[in-house]
């Protein structure tokens, strides 16, 4: 069985990572309080994250994600949502030493070329608005 690591940047089972992982994949959430400590998260932030995790109704483990996931996945592929967070990417890099890890992008908000000018928001918006103002079902 493959596992899907649901991390704090993508707390949803509607993310395309679930489809990529397949119907029998098991999503899990991992509560890493040392990471919260390092980020100095106040209690209210932790409660909010915990409530979002509980709401997904999936197994929750406590500890370091790299250890728990490599133990759980036992050489099977691990799927997870792509993220920009260096902590999440550090976990993925660690896991890749022993496992195949597939990262999956979310569905885009708008189609914006990679080389779009980001020096000013309004230039970026000029690209973005060509598709951002159209419902997704019409752009698929």
């Amino acid at each position: 069985m493959s596992f899907v690591w649901i991390h704090e940047d993508a707390m949803s089972l509607d993310h395309p990572v679930m489809e990529a992982a397949g119907l029998d994949a098991q999503p899990v959430f991992i509560w890493d309080s040392q990471h919260h400590d390092a980020e100095a998260y106040a209690l209210k932030r932790r409660v909010f994250i915990f409530e979002c995790a509980l709401d997904l109704d999936i197994p929750i483990y406590c500890g370091a994600p790299q250890i728990i996931l490599s133990d759980l996945a036992d050489r099977q592929t691990i799927f997870t949502a792509a993220s920009l967070d260096p902590y999440i990417n550090g976990v993925i890099a660690d896991l890749r030493q022993t496992h195949a890890v597939v990262t999956v992008d979310r569905h885009p908000f708008a189609s914006i070329p990679d080389d779009a000018d980001t020096r000013r928001f309004f230039r970026f918006w000029n690209y973005a608005k060509k598709t951002a103002l159209i419902p997704s079902e019409e752009t698929i």
Binding site: W31, D37, A42, L43, R46, F48, I49, F50, C52, A53
Partner: peptide, 22 residues
Amino acid sequence: QVRAISPNLDAMDTVVSSIQGG
């Protein structure tokens, strides 16, 4: 439960938001 799984959280930090996750 959040406190129990956050052993290093400052005991003086007791504030929780009215905004609920989920």
